[in-house]
Design a protein around this nucleic acid. Structure first.
Lengths: 156, 156
DNA sequence: TATTGTTATACTCTATAACTATA
DNA sequence: TATAGTTATAGAGTATAACAATA
């Protein structure tokens, strides 16, 4: 028998008022993904954001910080710190631009490329873990929908 | 003509190395959603997390903090601060449990219920804005997939 | 011994203002 | 005037350790 005057103590807490909203579902899912991804990257000396920065520097040689910040939708001011960390680790270099003395060209060192390659393999495994229970067709729908939602949000 | 020695400066920065991963797409989409939701809730004196706490307290009368923390997957230590804020605003009360002298029962005040009702309407509009460009069938797939991904992540 | 609520603390991400040196 | 990189700072979310009171 349940006491009618007792407190809600068990696992029967209802969150149906929130489950209807994408924002709530996205936050919950993203938190779970982020926790596993953080654990995945830590042994490689990277976090989500520094992994992303390193990936784009590897993929886009001689990338400028301002272009990188725009691509990742990160404030330039914050990007500086992430590049500092990658530079101090010896994985990314800043070389002065030949045409614009305000600007720099970012490049991954050989070690940076190797670290990235190893981390990417781990991230790929992580991704498989997270998506293992889903149909590939659903994954495609989700990725496309996320891009659409992002574009919608940015336009407001 | 493009200089072969120049830096990548334009909008042609490739992030295909990251686009293949759900985590990256989720982070981008969630950031955009969160920015609009933050703007949506600010006039009501709420943030995402305090809105969620208030919602569950309204929906689950006499809820215990520990059960609430578990339902929202939030640390108890952090929940204390959110409840403090809602209590100071006069929207939630802590009353001692009649059966367990360590515990409290959370309840929404009348004003808390009214604030929640108004905020919920705004959140509903926000949700419509974010999903406006998607098929309802895709929304269903996304919500279900997000729940599956979350469950997968939590189990690791 | 375990649980409830709590305090304190540290780390990370995000956002803004303001500065310098160049363009 | 505007832009590139930078510094400083504040707000917010997340995570852990440790404690008193109670179960």
């Amino acid at each position: 028998m349940r006491e009618t005057t007792g407190e809600q103590v068990g696992t029967n807490v209802s969150d149906t008022a929130l489950r209807g909203f994408v924002g709530y579902n996205m936050k919950r899912a993203f938190n779970a993904v982020q926790a596993d991804l953080t654990r995945t990257l830590a042994p490689h000396g990277l976090r989500m954001i520094t992994y992303s920065v390193l990936a784009l520097v590897v993929e886009n040689p001689r990338l400028r910080p301002s272009a990188l910040a725009k691509a990742l939708t990160v404030e330039r001011a914050n990007l500086v710190v992430y590049v500092d960390q990658l530079e101090q680790a010896g994985w990314v270099t800043r070389t002065p631009s030949s045409t614009d003395r305000r600007a720099y060209a970012l490049q991954a060192t050989l070690e940076g490329q190797q670290v990235y390659a190893r981390a990417m393999a781990a991230v790929r495994d992580h991704d498989q873990r997270m998506l293992g229970a889903l149909d590939p067709s659903d994954v495609a729908v989700v990725n496309k929908a996320l891009a659409t939602i992002e574009a919608q949000g940015r336009s407001l």
